[in-house]
Amino acid sequence: MLEINNLHANIDGTPILKGISLRVSPGEVHAIMGPNGSGKSTLASVLAGRSEYTVTSGSVTFMGRDLLALPAEERARLGIFLGFQYPVEIPGVSIANFMKAAVAARRAAMGLPELTPAEFLKQMRAAAALVELDPKLIKRAVNEGFSGGEKKRNEIFQMAMLKPALSILDETDSGLDIDALRIVSQGVNQLRTPENASIVITHYQRLLDYIVPDVVHVLYAGRIVMSGGKELAKDLETKGYDWIIKSLN
């Protein structure tokens, strides 16, 4: 589904990603861990198509397409979803209107007819229930005045609405208490199918107790320095990152 090959990327001339290679197949959950500043969020942003980053070399193929040649909105329509670490507020734009535009764009790209208002409403209710999001919030402006937990639940709500092929969850656990973490993780787990895949970016092993990964990668200084099974996350929890960094030198 996703094939990243020797990806290098800069921001303002500073290299951040220094040769990342990664293969994600349908049905898989990959966790990407690593200390602060290792390039985790940059990888998410580059895959989603944020224009501040410049890809200097390497390639990314997604569902047979050259992902790097596409603008952000077309990547999204192809089925790439980014769960933001810091979801943005859009004053005056209701979640319902926002999702209407997003779902319409995604469905049009998939060659599907527009949803009827009744069907759209039904799907919104179901998606809200999945992450225990107060249905009243759907009428409110996107993320405006939301608590940290509500913002993150809103991200997973949107993921449920858009049914992406690949979701990239960027530190979705940051700022969540244990109950919110459980709700968000359950939502993600229920959205898992054999056809879709996820990349879960996190600092802490804690999230991976809930969303169990197939593969864990350690990102350090812009490179994947180690990959392993879910037990690798446990090792990191007890031993930290130092032993890996030392073994590199």
Binding site: A48, S51, A72, E73, R77, V88, F98, A105, Q158
Partner: peptide, 22 residues
């Protein structure tokens, strides 16, 4: 804000329209 909209599949022109209307 623009990137957030685009990441949800909303094109730039529609995104600006949405934000301005909001």
């Amino acid at each position: 804000q623009l990137f957030y909209c685009k990441q949800r599949g909303i094109g730039e022109e529609d995104a600006i329209g949405l934000i301005v209307n909001g």
